[in-house]
């Protein structure tokens, strides 16, 4: 890690400095510093409750931060939204909603279509092309409640692909999917990498992380280590990541939240 440098890296697709995030006034991420190298597949790995999803959400301004700076391609998020695609966890939507697969993927284009303008056939064709990349083109007219878990995940990914972004942030895309979908997803990510895109993926399984990804960020309320997989995935680093939450850090954080409430 470079010496503490407070200026964000303007080449990096994602550059985080001193990020501290609190959830209900309890700090869950402390002083995160991280630069995502461009054109690589990066895994965020850590034990349960390490703050992996929280990191993605706070970077995307879905959760408020206590302090820190985040920049995308050297700019603030609001300026480069179209270049960043978010693939959330599957449980975040109501799957009984009356939309079909094509409608969901088309939502990825709404930002480009703009306020009050109708969705045209050209947009739907683009959405269909994205569905073809995830091999779900035949399901375009299916209502989303009829999809299996793996198919739901692929629909979200197609929505992100439709945006034609440069940076992809995925939150546990492999959770609860079958082996075939997992292979298909990784294949897609590799295609993105060949096209020069960057993907930052929250991943729950250490073994497959080593196999699928180029770089890793070991997270446990703070950055334990970050960098290329071969260098960072040492037993010492793993012990520091998975050796239990830092009890004192956790306690102090909880105390802070209680004081804030009284």
């Amino acid at each position: 890690m470079p010496l503490h440098d407070h200026t964000p890296n303007s080449d990096a697709p994602l550059s985080i400095r001193d990020l501290t995030v609190a959830y209900h006034r309890q700090p869950v991420l402390w002083d995160i510093d991280f630069d995502a190298p461009p054109g690589r597949l990066i895994a965020i790995v850590g034990p349960n409750g390490a703050g992996k999803s929280t990191l993605i959400k706070s970077v995307l301004e879905l959760l408020p931060r206590l302090s820190g700076e985040v920049s995308f391609f050297g700019r603030p998020f609001a300026e480069v939204r179209q270049r960043v695609a978010y693939v959330p966890q599957r449980t975040s939507v109501d799957w009984d909603f009356p939309v079909n697969v094509l409608d969901v993927v088309t939502m990825g284009l709404y930002g480009r279509i703009g306020w009050c303008r109708p969705v045209r056939a050209t947009h739907r064709r683009e959405a269909l092309a994205a569905l073809e990349k995830v091999e779900l083109a035949e399901f375009a007219q299916r209502q989303i409640s009829q999809l299996s878990g793996g198919q739901q995940q692929r629909v979200f990914l197609a929505r992100a692909l439709a945006q034609q972004a440069d940076l992809y942030l995925l939150d546990e895309p492999f959770a609860g999917v079958d082996a075939a979908t997992e292979r298909a997803l990784i294949e897609l990510l590799r295609q993105l990498r060949s096209a020069g895109k960057t993907a930052v993926v929250v991943h729950h399984d250490l073994q497959t992380a080593a196999e699928y990804f180029d770089d890793v960020l070991l997270l446990n309320l703070r950055v334990v280590a970050a960098g290329p997989m071969a260098e960072v995935l040492t037993s010492e680093n793993l012990r520091r990541t998975y050796g239990g939450k830092l009890a004192l850090l956790d306690q102090v954080g909880h105390e802070m939240s209680l004081r804030g409430r009284r």
Binding site: L60, E61, L62, R81, P88, D94, M107, Y110, G111
Partner: peptide, 13 residues
């Protein structure tokens, strides 16, 4: 889009 997936809508601006 706001009814269906509010988090996604936020990230889209």
């Amino acid at each position: 889009v706001v009814s269906f997936d509010a988090a996604f809508a936020v990230t889209q601006g």
